[in-house]
Amino acid sequence: MDTLRALSAFVHSVELGSLSGAARALDTTQPTISKLVAGLERSLGVRLLRRAATGLSLTEEGQRFHERARRVLEDYGDAVADAREQVQQPQGLLRVSAPVTMGQRHLNAMAVEFLRLYPDIELELVLDDRFVDPREERIDVSLRVGGALPPDLVAKHLGSWPRVLVASPDYIAARGKPRNPKDLLSHDYIRYAAGDDGVLLEGPEGAVTVPVRSRLRVNNAVAMLDSVLGGAGISLQPTWMVAGHLADGSLVRVLARHTGPAQEVHLLYAPRRHQPLRVRVLVDFLAERVAQLPGALRKPTQLSGKRR
Score class of each variant (00 low, 15 high):
S97F: 00
S34Y: 05
V46I: 11
V212H: 03
A194E: 14
S160L: 11
I139R: 08
L255A: 06
L7R: 00
G159I: 05
P119D: 12
L16M: 10
R95E: 05
R253M: 06
E113K: 04
D284N: 10
T101E: 10
R298M: 11
T54W: 00
P134M: 12
L149W: 01
I33T: 09
D133E: 11
S227D: 09
I172H: 05
A262C: 08
S168D: 10
T239G: 00
R163F: 00
V218M: 05
E15I: 04
V100H: 09
A270R: 05
D248F: 07
R253E: 07
E122C: 04
D226N: 14
R105G: 07
R213K: 14
N180I: 11
L303E: 15
L7F: 04
G146T: 03
P181H: 08
R257L: 09
N108V: 12
E137R: 15
G39M: 07
R95Y: 01
D75V: 15
R191T: 14
D120C: 12
A232L: 06
T59V: 07
G260P: 11
R272F: 14
Q237A: 00
G146M: 01
Y192M: 09
G176C: 09
A287M: 06
L40Q: 02
D2Q: 14
R116S: 13
L282V: 11
W161N: 00
L229D: 06
G17T: 06
V132E: 09
D75C: 09
Y76C: 10
L255S: 05
V254P: 08
K177W: 05
L58M: 01
A291I: 07
M1N: 12
A287Y: 05
H12P: 09
A194Y: 13
K182T: 14
E61G: 10
L4R: 01
S97P: 12
F10L: 08
R273E: 15
V265Q: 03
G62L: 03
H106A: 07
R278C: 11
R5Y: 11
T239V: 06
P150Y: 05
S250W: 04
G203C: 07
I172Y: 01
A194T: 13
D133N: 13
E60R: 12
Q263M: 13
R84V: 11
H274S: 14
V166L: 00
Q263F: 07
A270H: 03
R64G: 06
D248G: 04
V228G: 03
L19P: 02
G176D: 13
A287K: 03
A98N: 00
V87S: 08
R135M: 12
V126M: 13
L293Q: 00
T54A: 05
P181M: 10
D82C: 06
A9W: 11
M1H: 12
T28G: 07
S97L: 09
L236W: 00
Y171H: 12
L229H: 08
G17P: 07
H245Y: 02
